[in-house]
């Protein structure tokens, strides 16, 4: 299991290949990548703030839960902070399991929890200033699935 909180960019292909290669015995590897998108138009950057003393521990706890609940062979979470441009990867999750059902479910669970329980805050920067991204009721409701 690896959790990386970093400002540096990462290479999705490289991370996925290395993760899959190291996951001996896995019959399924699922990955998810979150990317900075410009939904409304005019986004110049995304600023991601976090709570350094809490972030890694919170994510480690969530990941350990996923590993034990779905009997994962391995799990990876990379999450960036700092200033990101449109099109850049923000974060990725990878899960390795014997079968695809567990790998998909664990990745889905991790994403729902990272969204609402990992101490990150996103701010969208446009030419007219910055606006904090608000959490949605759906984000919170998604947790009740688990």
């Amino acid at each position: 299991m690896r959790v990386a909180i970093q400002s540096a960019p990462f290479d999705i292909g490289h991370e996925t290949a290395a993760f899959a290669q190291a996951a001996a015995g896995a019959g399924a590897v699922v990955t998810f990548t979150g990317i900075v998108r410009d939904l409304a138009g005019g986004l110049t950057a995304m600023e991601i703030e976090h709570y350094p003393a809490m972030t890694e521990r919170a994510i480690r706890d969530i990941t350990l839960q996923a590993v034990s609940r779905w009997e994962l062979i391995d799990a990876l979470v990379i999450h960036r902070h700092g200033t990101l441009r449109v099109g850049e990867p923000i974060m990725m999750v990878a899960t390795a399991a014997a079968h695809r059902g567990s790998a998909f479910a664990a990745a889905d669970f991790l994403m729902d929890y990272l969204k609402s329980r990992a101490p990150f805050w996103k701010k969208e920067i446009t030419a007219s200033g910055g606006a904090w991204v608000a959490a949605t009721d759906q984000d919170e409701a998604a947790l009740s699935r688990w």
């Binding site: 979150g34 923000i90 990992a118 805050w121 919170e140």
Partner: peptide, 9 residues
């Protein structure tokens, strides 16, 4: 620590 609801992922 005080903060708004988190928006990770």
């Amino acid at each position: 620590a005080f903060f708004p609801p988190m928006t990770g992922g």
